[in-house]
Amino acid sequence: MSRRDLTLHLGLVAVLFLLHFILPAYHHGVLARIMVMAVYAIGYNIAFGYTGLLSLGHAMFFGAGLYGMGLAGLHYGVPAFPAFLIGTACGAALAFVVGLLALRTEGVSFMIVTLMFSQVAYLALLYFGAFTHGDDGFVVPDASRTLMGLSLSDEGTRYLVAWVLFSGALLGSLWLIRQPFGRVLIALRENEERARLLGYDTKRRKLAALVISGAVSAASGAAYAALFGYVGATFAGVQYSIFALLWVLLGGAGTVLGPFVGTLFMFYLIDLATGLTDAYMLIAGVALVGLTLFAPQGIVGELRRRFWKDLP
């Protein structure tokens, strides 16, 4: 790992920590949420950006974390941290099962199969409404929103917990792709056939990547439930799968910083657009089309192409 890379990413982590003290209240709250959602995007990026698995079903992993955490708290009174771990484990387990099946396909079929599994998961949330509270969702009990005696609903605690989680995910993903395992993933994305010929068990590595990706996405979902206190089926809908794709593409697929940059950019774009037009999803649509046309590498990807050749 080059010193320059490390400085850059540690720098971002440090800046985000400093922002805790100087941001005005609104942006402080927004940034906490963005960091949590950016973890979701980081998870998605491991599958899509680094391994080349275009999934349209990642909302089910986010949802697994959200519901795993929330339901453990609601029905069994599990405290925040164990519940967070349960949520993350749920996402990893789900990703393992889905991966076993879906990784038999590739390309367009993989995309559609993940979309459908995700749809089944969404419908299951509605169908088992007696347990999951269906489309209404539920409010996570305060007892499960307390960490080391601190209430996670407190603005300051929330920000710092989100910061810790985000920093872990960001530096973790940087570390991961610098490992031999990470390099094989990139090789899979670039040319799976060649990786196979070189003797790598491509299927197992893809499965491992999907499980990591699912677990990170679920960690984001579990953190969302713990920090923001609401669990609902909309988060497991198709739209949230598309959001992950959008954020990663916008920021730059296959870059470590891309998911954060994309999430940040998209949030403020929509936040500003709601002031201008009711149809703010129009902006998302235009952004998607514009990106594929003019900046297929995303913001960070373009920076890398132009200025910083070996940016991870």
């Binding site: 005696g149 601190l150 407190d154 603005e155 605690t157």
Partner: peptide
């Protein structure tokens, strides 16, 4: 306005962390 809500608890959070 938000500072009044946030200030003290942030400090508390920091201490513990």
């Amino acid at each position: 306005p938000a500072g009044t809500v946030r200030g003290p608890s942030r400090r508390q959070a920091l201490k513990t962390l």
